[in-house]
């Protein structure tokens, strides 16, 4: 009685595991072509990529698999050969990435802008200030709570460079008001909304963020807050397995008239979140 049941069980187990592994190996091997895009949370969470990529697939037959992380992590991932294309927003690291031979060429795609959000009560009194340095100066001198990404993302790097224009570098003495969340934009906004704190965010993440509570957009419009995105093909000479032709096709499509028009047409709650940069280089 026991033996057939045990055999059955063992057989079922082996079959199930083989079937499972088998189906995945098949699934994951490219049916048609897939490329891997390492990108930032802002492009993914805002829905921009979810809107663009199916159209690109329709045009080209190429699927784009998005791994959405911070700019720093996206480039480290590409440096290990784990992505074909990166779509990121921190010019100095992008330039270094190309210089060191990891990327082929940095190509501007679009921009949006950074904003400072904070509690409606605005204890530092920065609402409507158009000079971002001045606004940050007031936050610092009033020691009002400020949440930093602290995750080496493009936004984090931009925030540090903005503080640097004041000659300020957050240190141990600032722990009472300067907090690092160490996580993505959304999680950081969650923390800010919970702590009634100020926070630097890209506009796309802010507009699509669903848990604003008492937070308000307080500072925008300073040219220093411009947030340009670039796309870079990972160097196939560095990693022969990079799907260079397909990656290049994706990049060409993004900066084509069609791609750029689609980016401009993307709206969330009636707002345009990204502004194409590739067609008219003088615009930036």
């Amino acid at each position: 009685m026991e033996k057939p049941r045990k055999k059955l069980l063992a057989g079922a187990m082996v079959l199930a595991s083989l079937a499972a592994l088998g189906s995945y190996t098949l699934l994951s091997s490219p049916k048609g072509t897939n490329i891997t895009l390492a990108s930032t949370t802002s492009t993914e969470n805002s829905g921009l990529l979810g809107y663009l990529l199916p159209i690109f697939k329709g045009d080209s037959g190429i699927g784009v698999r998005v791994v959405a992380v911070g700019t720093g992590q996206a480039m480290r991932m590409a440096m290990k050969g784990d992505a074909d294309v990166v779509l990121v927003h921190h010019r100095p690291s992008e330039e270094l990435f190309v210089e060191e031979g990891y990327g082929v060429e940095r190509i501007s795609v679009m921009h949006n802008d950074f904003i400072i959000v904070g509690p409606a009560s605005d204890p530092a009194g920065i609402k409507g200030v158009t000079d971002v340095a001045a606004a940050l100066g007031r936050i610092r001198s009033s020691r009002a709570a400020f949440v930093s990404r602290g995750d080496d993302s493009g936004t984090h790097k931009r925030e540090l460079s903005l503080w640097a224009t004041l000659g300020f570098q957050p240190g141990d003495d600032d722990r009472d008001w300067y907090r690092e969340s160490g996580s993505g934009q959304g999680a950081t906004l969650n923390v800010a909304s919970e702590m009634d704190a100020y926070c630097l965010s890209d506009r796309a993440s802010w507009v699509t963020f669903g848990n604003k509570r008492g937070l308000e957009l307080l500072v925008e419009g300073d040219p220093l807050l411009l947030n340009p995105y670039s796309v870079i093909l990972v160097n196939p000479q560095k990693y022969p397995h990079i799907k260079a032709p397909e990656g290049q096709q994706f990049i060409d499509w993004l900066v084509s008239e069609r791609g750029q028009q689609l980016i401009a047409a993307f709206r969330v709650e009636g707002q345009q979140l990204f502004f194409p940069d590739a067609l008219d280089p003088t615009e930036e």
């Binding site: 979810g50 698999r65 791994v67 959405a68 959304g186 969650n190 963020f209 848990n211 604003k212």
Partner: peptide, 25 residues
């Protein structure tokens, strides 16, 4: 990598929705 239609599972979706501030979802 939490890739849509490929490697997105329940827990990574929950993490994603949390980071989008869609706490109800």
């Amino acid at each position: 990598g939490n890739i849509l239609h490929s490697t997105r599972v329940m827990t990574t979706t929950i993490a994603l929705e949390t980071s989008k501030g869609d706490l109800g979802m």
